[in-house]
Design a protein around this nucleic acid. Structure first.
Lengths: 204, 204
DNA sequence: GTATATATAGAATGTCGAGTCTAAAAATGA
DNA sequence: TCATTTTTAGACTCGACATTCTATATATAC
């Protein structure tokens, strides 16, 4: 994907991976529609024509950004899952990390997946497909968390859908809260209550 | 606000309230940025210049739409509160109604307040203020629900913030789920789990 | 009927943005 | 050195959009 063997012509003056990361952050920060090609040129440092040649059009760059965003999350989540703790502990780690990230000021506001889903889902076939995939991938992680719980007797096997959707929705809810101005303690309180609901799962 | 006493000049050819309602539905359906002035002219049936004279610019029309949206919700919610049921029953009614609305095909996707907060919060001073107000009004209703619970011993008085934020976030989560394609049963399952967490409140 | 006030139709304006195109630059290989 | 290949700089095109402007229409007040 990156500069294979360096062939003939003039070499690239920018790094493909860094450029995509910068584009992803810009889409995250400004949203899809408010991000202009000039923004992308500026943040990536890549020339206009090169962006088109390398990634395709604006939509393609967005889709690639969304994919990168999802992959980043999956890596972190898989690392948490690999610790082999209980469903409750795993969920707590993941949700708390989300809350901290949403409350912090390092990353752009909210979550690229949720932001974009609420901004543009339903307005373009290709983007819809990409967003559906991103959401499905996220939910897949939540399913793994609940699967863990089912294997350990923390939840009944018939609750896979129910609880994984609940977790997915809870993260969306936190994003919504964070975007509307709630802070760290509020989000952590939300996590606490969410976990309490999860903990009651087996008594149903 | 509407045609006061009918004065001198040519009378309006459109109804202000209907126009605003149509604009609100369009912003809800398409989002702020994707709604053009031509869209507003078309959906309201009001001429371009009249929209400007009556409401102001696009941003003003949006802010008025958001206000109308909030007022509509408050009316329905106050009616539910007026039934004087328990916190749990009140929350169940409100959340279930949200789920049904989100899953139904009568209204546009999601919720104007949540959609807009994730789409444009942070991009314009005036709009930010209006969105903050809309979110605060919504949360105010959730506080009333929890207040009810505190008065009836369904929740402790120190849980007002905690639980009202949880309810507010839960609705945002449902919107997020609905926008990403989950259906009626999934949303109702989400409500059920949310209510379970609320029901555990007093045991904390 | 005439003056006045308001609304309407729709053209005009100016900005912005996505995507394309051309010429110059910078590498390789003969 | 020179032909070839790829990238780059940035001008250019074309359409979309928000907002304003002008001329006209339609009412009331006297």
């Amino acid at each position: 994907m990156t500069n294979e063997t360096r062939g003939r012509g003039r070499p690239r003056g920018f790094d493909e991976e860094h450029a995509l990361e910068a584009a992803m952050l810009t889409f995250w920060k400004k949203g899809y529609r408010r991000t202009s090609l000039d923004d992308l040129v500026q943040c990536t440092g890549a020339p206009r024509a090169s962006l088109y040649k390398t990634f395709g059009d604006k939509r393609d760059i967005f889709i690639a950004s969304l994919d990168l965003y999802g992959t980043r999350f999956e890596k972190r989540a898989e690392a948490v899952l690999a610790a082999n703790k209980s469903m409750m502990a795993t969920a707590e780690t993941l949700l708390t990390a989300s809350a901290e990230r949403l409350a912090g000021s390092d990353a752009p506001a909210g979550c690229l997946r949720c932001n974009s889903t609420l901004e543009i889902m339903g307005s373009d076939r290709e983007i819809d497909r990409a967003l559906a995939e991103a959401n499905a991938r996220f939910h897949g992680i939540m399913e793994k968390v609940v699967d863990r719980g089912i294997a350990r007797g923390e939840a009944g096997p018939q609750q896979l859908d129910h609880l994984s959707v609940f977790l997915t929705g809870a993260v969306g809810g936190m994003v919504s809260l964070a975007r509307s101005g709630w802070g760290r303690d509020d989000l952590l309180g939300f996590v606490e209550t969410t976990l309490r609901a999860l903990g009651e799962a087996k008594d149903r």
